[in-house]
């Protein structure tokens, strides 16, 4: 289910709801799969009383991981050439996240069409929590 250069255009967007009412249990699942057991993400007494945060909060990489699905669902698997970004705001339990990828250019690299995307993941208040860019290979 790959995208073809002939049926996409600059400005086209791909959007997905990534999570609604993010649960602490999902943070535990991500800790377990990624191996990042930082108590900031699963240990309420530590996060609030020692580190001074209002509650535990999501691994930035969980947000980036959830957002990656917008790209792989749009492009097809195994077609990403690059994916990166910055964590611009924290994600807390209870948050709803939406990911949007927008095609900003379509180029031919070594004879292969490549789309560049800008990526923005926002929460229920419209605050951007992850801002990134990706490139992926298209069918000609």
């Amino acid at each position: 289910m790959a995208l073809s250069a002939s049926n996409v255009s600059v400005g086209q967007t791909f959007e997905q709801v990534l999570v609604e009412d993010l649960k602490r249990t999902q943070l535990v699942m991500y800790a377990g799969s990624s191996g990042d057991y930082n108590p900031l993400h699963s240990d309420e007494p530590f996060a609030t009383q020692v580190a001074g945060y209002p509650s535990v909060f999501a691994h930035g990489m969980l947000t980036m991981g959830m957002t990656g699905r917008v790209l792989t669902d749009a492009l097809g698997d195994g077609r990403l050439l690059s994916y990166g970004g910055r964590f611009t705001s924290q994600v807390f339990p209870g948050d709803n996240l939406k990911g949007v990828a927008t095609i900003t250019s379509i180029d031919t690299v070594d004879g292969v069409p490549v789309a560049t995307f800008s990526i923005s993941t926002t929460n229920q208040d419209g605050v951007e929590v992850f801002s990134g860019e990706a490139r992926g290979r298209l069918d000609s």
């Binding site: 691994h59 930035g60 990489m61 050439l81 690059s82 994916y83 910055r86 964590f87």
Partner: peptide, 19 residues
Amino acid sequence: GGGGGGGLHAEQHYEYHRP
């Protein structure tokens, strides 16, 4: 680097050379 106790993760970028 990876978001430790006093540290947080600010950015992450990947280049994929093959799947």
